[in-house]
């Protein structure tokens, strides 16, 4: 009797490596379900695995550029010179823009209360024979699966038993 192994992944090359490796072992019964992403994430900063398109540096960098240019120019007259005034101008411009975006985003997020950070992005279901379970499980773990669950196919056994009874 076979097993069905459920696992969750994030989008990465590892996922495709896992699938191709399983196919090398002649395990072909693989079903993938990519999940839709939550529209608004509670995380403020973009990471490799969670990007929500809310940028906190758009306004900040524009202001840093503007204040930096003015700072350099002012520095030719002020005491500390153009380099330091340019840096001060840029830093304060960046800080002001960043604070503006953070506050703006915080207000926006308050309206849409969200839970914890996103984890699984794809569900992969692999069907295999009992003796292959260990191999499949290890392959999934090695390729950065977030979670793996091995389940027996009891409903299939029951269906077959019912069919046998009828005959």
């Amino acid at each position: 009797m076979g097993l069905q192994i459920f696992s969750t992944f994030q989008h990465s090359h590892y996922l495709e490596l896992a699938i191709s490796e399983l196919k090398e072992y002649k395990i072909e019964d693989i079903y993938a379900v990519p999940l839709d992403n939550r529209k608004l994430d509670s995380k403020m900063f973009d990471t490799m695995h969670a990007m929500d398109g809310t940028s906190l540096v758009d306004t900040a960098l524009i202001l840093a550029m503007m204040c930096g240019t003015v700072g350099v120019a002012r520095g030719f007259v002020l005491d500390w010179g153009p380099v330091f005034w340019g840096l001060i101008g840029s830093a304060s411009g960046f800080a002001a823009g960043f604070a503006f975006d953070v506050i703006k985003t915080a207000i926006k997020r308050k309206k849409i209360k969200t839970g914890k950070t996103r984890l699984g992005e794809i569900i992969i279901i692999v069907q295999c024979k009992n003796e292959q379970a260990e191999l499949v499980e290890q392959t999934l773990w090695r390729n950065m699966a977030l979670g793996v669950a091995v389940t027996s196919m009891q409903s299939l056994e029951r269906n077959q038993a019912v069919l046998a009874d009828k005959n």
Binding site: Q4, H11, P34, M153, S155, L156
Partner: peptide, 28 residues
């Protein structure tokens, strides 16, 4: 974002066989 979108699209096109049946059972 593009990477995630493209990979999801690839999985939908190539790894959703029609004959795959889901069976209920205990977690081992």
């Amino acid at each position: 974002k593009l990477f995630s979108w493209e990979q999801a699209d690839f999985l939908k096109r190539h790894h959703q066989p029609q004959n795959f049946v889901l069976h209920k059972g205990e977690k081992i």
